[in-house]
Amino acid sequence: MKRPVLHGLSINVNPGEMVGLIGLNGAGKSTTIKHILGLLKQHKGEIYINGNTLESSPMHYRSSYAYVPESPLMYYELTVEEHLKLTAMAYDIDKKEYANRVDYLVDEFQMRDKLTKFSAHLSKGMRQKMMIMSAFLVQPSLYIIDEPFLGLDPLGIRSLLDLMVKMKEAGASILMSSHILSTIEQYCDKLVVLHEGHVIASGNLSNIQQASGVDNATLEDAFYALVKDGI
């Protein structure tokens, strides 16, 4: 058995809540996300989505989240539109519902003229948009979003944030990991600071400020105060 990377992690993402997962490179953010996705098996503890664990009912577990990966993972043989259709099939989305959602998403992300393009011919930002559209097409209970802003143009970032707020208000849970702390501070209701596999602070901004010992600090300053001892 490998040496554990994460220790005693406890993260709660409630309906209608956006939680920001922050930490330095190698802090364990991606590992945390892989565990939630069900790609890694934790040594101890349980992970529940909508009350299901991966073991108890794998299909319910998997269908209750959607994932936006840090770097796009695509089928080279498929066009953008076919990626969306494939997602709709895998998550059993109603035909009419599919048409409506796609219509909305392609306009929001300005991808209408890219629908018939092959994913390999898209720029990094457009691939990222394709991943985001696929995830939001599913409209699951939980969104897991890993550093989504890299390569996105300002309009795309705005659309993504608007969409996240909209889904959150409709009752979805969002777990987002990012290094863009100002955005996290502005949008997330709760924060989890990971450091060397441990949660060293969590809660809302004032909780983080308290933990860092710096009053009235921005998230960036508080985060720096929290992790600098380890450097």
């Binding site: 089928y75 043989e77 498929l78 076919e82 259709k85 494939l86 709709a88 099939m89 895998a90 059993d92 989305i93 109603d94 035909k95 599919y98």
Partner: peptide, 19 residues
């Protein structure tokens, strides 16, 4: 491939047909 309707059981038939 547009003939494949949006249904779970078609997912991989669709994917591998286009592949």
């Amino acid at each position: 491939a547009e003939l494949f309707s949006i249904q779970k059981r078609n997912t991989f038939v669709f994917l591998y047909y286009l592949t």
